[in-house]
Amino acid sequence: MIAVLVTNTKGGCGKTTIATNLAAAFAASRLTTALANVDRQRSAMQWLAARPSRLPAIRGLDWRKDIGEVPDDVQRLVIDAPAGLRLRQVDQLLTEADVVLVPVQASAFDVDSTRRFLDRLGELKPVRKQRKGVFLVANRVRPRTRASRRLDQALAELGHPVAARLADRALYAELAATGLGVFDVGGSVAVEARREWLDLVHAVEDSLA
């Protein structure tokens, strides 16, 4: 099994969007996939509840109280960690994870808080010993804007690879409400989005190969 932890202590940077779409991508690849929800707001759970049964199934794991067992047959686990988590809690989740994704949002990007978070993450043993890959994911990017150029510069200084740049799209609100991921919809709208998501999936897969 490969476990991916999506985390950033700052809120509103698109953790759940990334966790749910990544889980949907794994499921679309026919991997037995589970999505663990640590967030009290249960947004990942709501997404799962809305997911149509005709699509490849994703198992929900409720980790709001405790980190629970993962069924043996699960091949990919995505952990959606909430904002405002304490470092000790992140540490616990990290022991479960193979890869860490840290989403950052272009418009509301705060270099200092992200750097502080990455520094603290770097102090945790599994990361310090470089056993876990830590990737940044630029989210809600508006290409060719000042904000996106500033983001690129700032990300370059943070010293972690950027696994993907996901553009700001109305599509995601729709997907969130209907339990879908970008790989579950056809049509030309999602073509570009799928291309961006492939970068993320490849980064996760390659970091372990």
């Binding site: 794994f26 991997l31 047959d73 091949q75 999936v201 996760v204």
Partner: peptide
């Protein structure tokens, strides 16, 4: 179509490969 292989171990071997890839 990788789904033709019934054995889930196949997907452990190939990893995530999305439709059309």
């Amino acid at each position: 179509d990788l789904a033709a292989f019934r054995d889930p171990a196949v997907h452990d071997v190939v990893g995530a490969v999305l439709p059309g890839e």
